[in-house]
Amino acid sequence: MFMRNFLALCLILTSAAAMAAPRNYVLQATASNVGFETDFGPDKITGQMPVTQADLSIDFQNIANSKVAVTLDVTGAEASFPFAAQAMKGPKVLDSREFPNITFLSTAVARDGDGATVTGNITIRGVTRPEVLHAVLYRQQGAVAGDLSHLSIRLTGTIARSDFGAIGWNDMVGDQVRLDILAQIQRVE
């Protein structure tokens, strides 16, 4: 669904201009979002959670040298219907009062086809577990080819909320949560 936003979807990893060292990127706070989706009976609950921080270090020559750290704001989460947001933020699921953030810290990055496989630790409800996300970098809308100063990173993956003790309403809401994180990042010059 985010694809629409990009006129020139170009795969940066394969076309990157030669650059020797890893470069640092930070979040462009606007327009960065975590989309998620889970099952609710025969239906789906969808929603978003704002990204508060994203710090990336990208080595276009040697992708394994890259690092990703993302922080999400649970208190700002929204869902497709009001009860779902309340249930999700409440003590039985994410418990946003106790645990206002979700964090992801990469431990290993590996080239994978058009993108990369990012292994890292996700902390939800204070529980930290290794998870694997798939990452793809895009050039931002309007940027000229070869301009790596502003990028979009899309991270997708699936987690089981029960792994983090977020088990509320597990008799009616699915355990599997599909994540689709889109962050706009800019290079630190």
Binding site: F40, G41, P42, D43, F81, F83, M172
Partner: peptide, 8 residues
């Protein structure tokens, strides 16, 4: 009932 959007 199995709760869903249709019967909430």
């Amino acid at each position: 009932l199995q709760p869903g959007l249709a019967n909430l």
